[in-house]
């Protein structure tokens, strides 16, 4: 497990450290959190509290491609439910689950700021818009 860098103003931010871990490992391992707590001299529960507050941080490993389908009102008005169902049936997983090959995780999310091109979803950092069930299988096929 990488050592946590020495205290500088930037690195006093628990969140920044956890975001780095998330980026690197795809999740935040428990011993990483313990390292953060030790090196910043705060309690583990405080670190855990930060890790579990934000929806883009997770404490368990996710698939290589994290799919976040928007389910807020503007997307709902454009049949987001159909998109959710089509991702579910393509991947045979439900929200909160990861495919057995570790390729995909599916979660539902709130507005991703693409409501004018609803329905929308994100895969990792990329936003996909004007979705139709037909587009879903093409998009998923292109994922590595």
């Amino acid at each position: 497990m990488p050592e946590v860098k020495k205290k500088t103003k930037e690195h006093e931010s628990v969140l920044v450290l956890l975001q780095e871990a998330q980026e690197k490992f795809g999740y935040i391992p428990e011993d990483f959190m313990a390292n953060v707590a030790r090196s910043l001299d705060i309690s583990l529960s405080e670190v855990f509290g930060v890790a579990t507050f934000y929806s883009f941080l997770t404490c368990k490993p996710l698939g290589r491609n994290v799919i976040r389908v928007c389910k807020s009102l503007p997307c709902c008005l454009k049949d987001a439910q159909m998109i959710i169902e089509s991702v579910e049936s393509e991947l045979r997983i439900k929200p909160g689950e990861t495919t057995t090959d570790g390729k995909f995780s599916l979660t539902l999310t709130n507005c991703v700021g693409a409501c004018d091109k609803a329905p929308a979803m994100m895969i990792n950092d990329d936003t996909y818009t004007d979705l139709t069930p037909g587009k879903i299988s093409q998009i998923l096929k292109k994922c590595k």
Partner: peptide, 11 residues
């Protein structure tokens, strides 16, 4: 932060 549902102007 523009998290408000239905808002995308800052983007």
């Amino acid at each position: 932060d523009e998290g408000e549902m239905g808002t995308f102007k800052d983007k």
